[in-house]
Amino acid sequence: MSALIFFFTFALIAVGAAVGMLFSRNAIYAALLLIVNFASVAFLYLSLGAPFIALAQVTVYAGAIMVLFLFVIMLLGAERLPPSQELPWQRPLGIVLAFLLLIEAVYGIVFRVNSAATLSLPVVEFATPAEIGSALFSTYLLPFEITSVLLLVAVVGAIVLTRAEGGARRRALVSQITQAVATEVPEHKAETPEEEKELV
């Protein structure tokens, strides 16, 4: 009974936070509601007997990834977007497609999943970090290494994509300023060396 209450409480919090994320106008609120969603899902992981996954969810998702989201939102000033009506059919079509997927998935789950699957007794060494680590480094070594290469590629890609094109832009700016000064100097003579320095 208490397991039922636990499940429903956190499932409802998670779904409510996700729906609130969809309809919040401010991107900061959307990110904060997504953190609430991730935290309540972490509680569900705890009730499923995966404490390591729950804590990794809190640190990696709710911690690192969402802080990155908040950082970019505040960096770009993208909290609120000006309303645009370029694609008025986009939202209704999205609702229809998402509902189709939900109905299809629920139909499949209700009619196909073997509902006789029940909880078996937990093992003593139950998905501890040591056990997950030994599985990652023995059975799943190749996927693990591919994941590390993926992370490396992502890091390099992020650096290349966001690198400021400092050299080219500064050179363009300098040539623009020198041109402006060259066209302006004949009629507007710089009286003092300070002003000339400002112009340049």
């Binding site: 990696v60 989201f69 599985a135 059975t139 799943y140 992020a158 994509l161």
Partner: peptide
């Protein structure tokens, strides 16, 4: 196997967010 693959999904999600936000910037 389940938790092991969930950790890989974590790493994939982190990589996806890093590249996606870099693209947006």
């Amino acid at each position: 196997a389940g938790p092991a693959f969930v950790t890989m999904v974590f790493a994939t999600a982190a990589a996806e967010v890093a590249v996606g936000l870099a693209l947006i910037i």
